[in-house]
Design a protein around this nucleic acid. Structure first.
Length: 318
DNA sequence: CTTCTGCCCTGGGAGC
DNA sequence: TGCTCCCAGGGCAGAA
């Protein structure tokens, strides 16, 4: 499934291959894949057609393209008022297509297809493919972010789509990354919560882009148990797990590859990272790579939490 | 206000 | 073999 590093790889690829293109037409094959949008798929198509994709921006796992009318280009420096917003959910892909016959590559789970003109590459279509339909597209108004500071990789805009307004920055954000001014404040906010550390890591209002997999991997690296109460953690513990989460994501991003030949493959959402690099997630019963103890799986929020019971000592009361 | 639960959806795989 | 059921996941609405 696309985690934050995959979404960033997709953003980077789309920035290179399709930003600047104009949407000539839109096909919606499944209404449910266009959500959070007044007027539904019909309005979605109308609002998107004739718009230029002016940039590719990401915050957490949200990805968006600020829009500009193609027939009335705004003056330089003007800000977009709306954006095409995408969330890939757990199975979404944005596939860049360059062929001339679109029927040649009609994926069985194709939900939405954008027809493009004038891309900076040979791209002709962007296909939104999503098997499990947890992902969606919409056109959303851009709203100022409350804290005003620039945010989102790929942009210095201080505005985000409405549905993203309550989503915190992520650990690759220039304002929040290791050593940046916002990092200490994030650690303080984590410790101010009265919950378990893994719940805080997954809370999109605290920090975004950390999913179930990376939460477990980061906690294993930081040798912290998922149930540790946030308000009783030491500051250094919180920093250690945040650093670990950023590190895991940067390693995955590096493995995504950056060569141009690989670009189409990477835009298409493949990573290969998870096949070899996971230390605890999905490894129940397999030996911990640090101490050999069998990895344990606990039920957690109708999901799972994977830990090494020796490296990550459970708190007294769970 | 903060914290937490249940739900959305599909198809692969396990179990019978 | 074919059927049923469970599971995965992020983020949201609404309850506590």
């Amino acid at each position: 499934m696309p985690e934050l590093p995959e979404v960033e790889t997709v953003r980077d690829g789309l920035e290179r291959l399709v930003v600047g293109a104009v949407v000539r037409d839109v096909e919606v094959f499944r209404d449910y894949s266009v959500r959070r949008h007044d007027g539904g798929p019909v309005a979605f198509r109308a609002e998107l057609t004739g718009q230029r994709l002016a940039a590719a921006v990401r915050r957490g796992k949200f990805l968006w393209f600020p829009l500009e009318p193609a027939d009335a280009p705004p003056p330089p420096g003007a800000r977009s008022a709306a954006a095409l917003l995408a969330h890939l959910g757990m199975s979404g892909q944005l596939l860049v297509r360059s062929g001339t016959d679109p029927d040649d590559f009609r994926h069985p789970h194709l939900r939405v297809r954008l027809h493009l003109d004038g891309a900076p590459s040979d791209a002709r279509y962007v296909d939104f493919v999503d098997q499990r339909t947890f992902g969606y597209l919409s056109v959303s108004d851009l709203v100022p972010v409350p804290d005003g500071a620039p945010g989102g990789l790929g942009s210095d805009l201080a505005a985000v789509p409405g549905p993203v307004a309550h989503i915190a920055r992520d650990l690759l954000d220039p304002y929040l990354k290791g050593g940046a001014e916002g990092r200490d404040d994030l650690a303080r906010r984590v410790r101010r919560r009265r919950t378990q550390i893994k719940r805080a890591l997954l809370d999109q209002g605290v920090v975004s882009g950390v999913g179930n997999i990376y939460a477990d991997e980061a906690l294993w690296r930081a040798r912290l148990h998922w149930a540790r109460p946030t308000d009783r953690l030491r500051v250094a513990d919180v920093h250690r797990v945040l650093d670990a989460a950023e590190e895991v994501m940067r390693e995955a991003l590096a493995q995504g590859g950056t060569s141009f030949d690989a670009l189409y493959v990477n835009v298409n959402g493949q990573s290969g990272y998870f096949d070899r690099s996971l230390n605890v997630y999905g490894r129940e019963g397999e030996p911990c790579r640090r101490c050999g103890t069998p990895i344990r799986r606990d039920p957690f929020m109708n999901r799972s939490a994977f830990t090494c019971p020796v490296c990550q000592r459970a708190p007294r009361a769970t």
